[in-house]
Write a protein that binds this DNA or RNA. Structure first.
Lengths: 132, 132
DNA sequence: CTGAATCCTATGCGATACTG
DNA sequence: CAGTATCGCATAGGATTCAG
């Protein structure tokens, strides 16, 4: 696999650079979006702009608290744009920035891998459960 | 962006299917490898098989506890192979399975995005900090 | 050298109630 | 509608110690 080699080379590189936490983009990325919701919110917004309550319905089991928190962080990182209409009642619309849109490609890659290999993972777990 | 549209479509699909936690590959994937270490361990192994202590040195700030735990889970999911040499002292080597190698491609995509857009993210954060 | 076991703390995250 | 505030639990994960 070519990607494997490239990835291995990159890792050796980080290692040589001392793996500085603040300067390692990967560590930084994982710290931000490696949580339970960020990627799902981004996927939800990939289809187009959505209002707060629409997002809440789209992510069935997220709490308002976490939805707010997640959106705020994505906004701070420049991935999501927040548009407030000062009407009564207020209407707030979230959408991907161009930076957020650029993240759709790698995220899609991850999603496709997950879909393609989910069966294999389940099988591996089953084998292990059986062995025990 | 084409990937954005594809991602949006996929999301609508999950939504229509009820978003069942146990059957959604993406939720499942994120629950497993969406932690702090899994992706880094996979990246470390992308360069080739490594021993336990080598991995520990390669990931400067992982504790033995988390390294063991992470490796065990990746092994259970069929991404990593564990090879024990019954010598004294014992020598245990970890390597990617073919399934694990297949994950290198999407992971590399993520890493490349992180490297390419890290500056933009930092800039967004800086703008926000300045505004406050 | 490669873990397993135990202890402890930080915090992710949900539930609920309240506000403009 | 779109949040904020407060509470409380479950878990992630580090530090340390023990074992084969």
């Amino acid at each position: 696999m070519d990607a494997r080699v490239a990835l291995g080379a990159k890792f050796e590189n980080w290692l040589a650079l001392g793996f500085d936490d603040a300067r390692c983009p990967v560590r930084n990325l994982l710290d931000q979006i490696g949580d339970r919701w960020s990627m799902l919110v981004l996927a939800a917004l990939a289809g187009g702009a959505k209002r707060f309550s629409t997002l809440a319905r789209a992510l069935p089991d997220i709490s308002k608290r976490m939805l707010t928190q997640t959106l705020r962080r994505l906004e701070a990182d420049g991935l999501v744009h927040r548009d407030v209409q000062p009407t009564v009642p207020p209407s707030v619309t979230y959408s991907l920035t161009s930076l957020g849109e650029s993240f759709a490609a790698p995220l899609l890659g991850l999603v496709e891998w997950a879909e393609a290999n989910f069966a294999a993972v389940l099988e591996a777990r089953a084998r292990r459960a059986q062995a025990a």
